[in-house]
Write a protein that binds this DNA or RNA. Sequence first.
DNA 1: GTCTATACTTGGATAGAC
DNA 2: GTCTATCCAAGTATAGAC
Lengths: 217, 217
Amino acid sequence: MAKAGSPSKVATAGTARSANTRRALVDAAIETLKEHGFSGASARAIAERAELNQGLVFYHFGSVANLLLAALDAVSESRMVRFSAAVTSVSSPAELMDVAAQIFREDLDTGHVTVLVEMIAGASSTPGLGAEVASRIAPWFTFTQNAIDSTFGASPFASLLPSDDLAYTIVALFLGLEMLTHLDGDRERALSIFGHAQQLVALLGAFSTFAPPKETS
Amino acid sequence: MAKAGSPSKVATAGTARSANTRRALVDAAIETLKEHGFSGASARAIAERAELNQGLVFYHFGSVANLLLAALDAVSESRMVRFSAAVTSVSSPAELMDVAAQIFREDLDTGHVTVLVEMIAGASSTPGLGAEVASRIAPWFTFTQNAIDSTFGASPFASLLPSDDLAYTIVALFLGLEMLTHLDGDRERALSIFGHAQQLVALLGAFSTFAPPKETS
DNA sequence: GTCTATACTTGGATAGAC
DNA sequence: GTCTATCCAAGTATAGAC
């Protein structure tokens, strides 16, 4: 499946300025994905933005698809760090909603979710890419599910809406809202929706007692 | 904005076999979008599938982007017809949920929503395409909102979740679920989620009386 | 080991044939 | 008016320079 070659293939540890070049390419790939989408993220376009020779894409990553996956890894990791930090300070469903809204706002500004969306949508163009993207999205489901479990876990609502399905739904909603917002440029619409969701959670809280702050292990 | 030319430009009524060629190209464009996504939907790929000369794309539609928009129009119209028919027989929120689940299942099978998703995600590649796609998505918001108003309209929940925001959310959820399902191939997951939504609506119905079947005008 | 110059392939677009 | 043969630009990939 992967072609054997001498230099880097998929992700050589490498040393020296190689790392700099790779980082520059990954950064440029992220920006290009945000600005011109998957179909606009060619080796030439990315290299031009990084002010590097186009051939370096293939030397360091083997293919454009591999570089884009590295870009997806980078944003995914950075977002996961940010998410984790934000969620640790959360103890109630209402607070979790606040964090979710805040995170969504940030993602809208930074364009990080756009990278996910473009990679998912672009996955169907290249054989095998879908599976690679899917394995990189998977952590988001478990992360979201954990966040739900540790706040809504003891709530009576948990029984009629399993947290894995809810997590899947929330990720889908994030992606869908990002896509539409990116399309129509109507930031306020999505933020208004998060506002309603916050109210709704508050209302649900009035009907029943939720789980107390649950420390992480 | 649009380049003036002799033959068809954007959508000439045309006559004779021209219409056949155009239809064949549109059909092939839809299939190509479903199978290879926006970035794989080149003039060559589409024409090859239609067994037509690649240059016909430009003669009949002026550009690949215009052909893809025509494809979006076609699926959008066909889905709108299907939707409208399904919704007219609906009189309660529970029934509306049934119809929504049914429609989603159909869209998953036919791949119609994939076309929307690919066009939205691909819009950022070509200047001006985003606005065109947005104007073709807009009817879906108003349609969804109308469906909500005529079933949930008199419900007390309408006050805490405006129907336009709810419609936007539902469209976003549709797109997001389709994207994820297409990625991981897990049909059952999305259908399970619709099942929970149906239960939830039923539960809400138990808390309060909903509006009676409201005839269209 | 790192990078550049070059080869080759695919895609968009049109001049001109029918 | 409809379509095809052809042109040029952009994309991927690599052989070879440093």
